[in-house]
């Protein structure tokens, strides 16, 4: 098709400020946090009882472990891998809503779909751009983390490849967030409602997964439905990407993406 890639390129170009600000911001955050490893890990060293409390378990899950926290892998998995997807969640949801909902609510979708492009192409090209945008943001975060490791003698044993791998491991979980926003915006046809439902699912998933580590019986089954359960930062830092979990998250993304196209192809475009 003669118009292939036009929307993809436009979406990337329009997102250049967001990519740079989120990416550089998260890169600086990673750099700062990793260079503070010696002092912070020391401060938390004697706090094992505190970290085992339900409050910290809810926020940190398996990372609420003083012994692990004192190690470079545990520290990086907490400060970088556990928290960064939560920060990126805001941007990922915005990007997911940007695929259809923003244009539909502004009314520009009527003009866009006045040109000879099928509806599915709008979703495919914009979603491909979202994938690249999140990859770039996480890459910039990874560059900040690499610099942090290089500048901190206490992290000298950390493999630089593992740090980049860890950055990449955050991609599917953030893509799930964007895909949820896309799916709900195509089904609910309201940007605000889609943002609210997606936010609620992300928060619920995060806490259910973390709390399941202390309430295995009560939350064991339901935690399997939580997408966060398929994201294990500590395991990634210790042994590399857990590919089975990575694949499950990719399947969730693909399913949400497919359902979004299905719903969008069949429904009316709002005025």
């Amino acid at each position: 098709m003669k118009n292939t890639g036009v929307i993809f390129k436009r979406t990337l170009w329009d997102s250049r400020v967001g990519i740079l600000s989120w990416g550089i911001g998260l890169g600086i955050l990673a750099l700062g946090e990793l260079t503070l490893f010696p002092s912070i890990s020391e401060a938390f060293a004697g706090m094992s009882e505190l970290l085992n409390s339900p409050f910290y378990k809810a926020f940190l899950g398996e990372n609420a472990d003083a012994a692990a926290f004192a190690t470079p892998a545990g520290y990086i998995s907490t400060y970088m891998l556990a928290f960064v997807p939560l920060y990126v969640a805001v941007y990922a949801v915005m990007l997911g809503l940007g695929v259809v909902a923003n244009e539909e609510e502004r009314g520009t979708l009527d003009v866009l779909l006045g040109t000879p492009i099928p509806r599915w192409q709008v979703i495919v090209e914009k979603s491909a751009a979202v994938l690249v945008i999140l990859l770039l943001v996480l890459l910039l975060n990874g560059v900040g983390a690499l610099l942090g490791v290089l500048m901190t003698p206490e992290l000298a044993d950390v493999s630089l490849g593992r740090v980049l791998e860890a950055s990449f491991s955050m991609l599917p979980v953030t893509l799930v967030m964007a895909a949820l926003a896309l799916f709900f915006s195509t089904v609910l046809r309201s940007r605000n409602l889609a943002a609210g439902v997606t936010g609620a699912i992300i928060i619920a998933s995060y806490f259910i997964t973390n709390l399941s580590s202390i309430a295995q019986e009560a939350l064991g089954t339901i935690s399997k439905l939580s997408f966060y359960s398929y994201y294990s930062p500590l395991d990634t830092m210790r042994g590399g990407i857990v590919w089975s979990e990575f694949a499950i998250l990719c399947v969730i993304v693909a399913a949400l993406f497919g359902l979004s196209i299905y719903a969008f192809q069949r429904r009316d475009i709002s005025v």
């Binding site: 009314g107 009527d110 006045g114 099928p118």
Partner: peptide, 21 residues
Amino acid sequence: DSVRIRERLGNLPGELSLWNH
């Protein structure tokens, strides 16, 4: 055949919105 039709069609929506930036 909407895509083929739109190749030969020009449209001005009633409530026109364009990209502000």
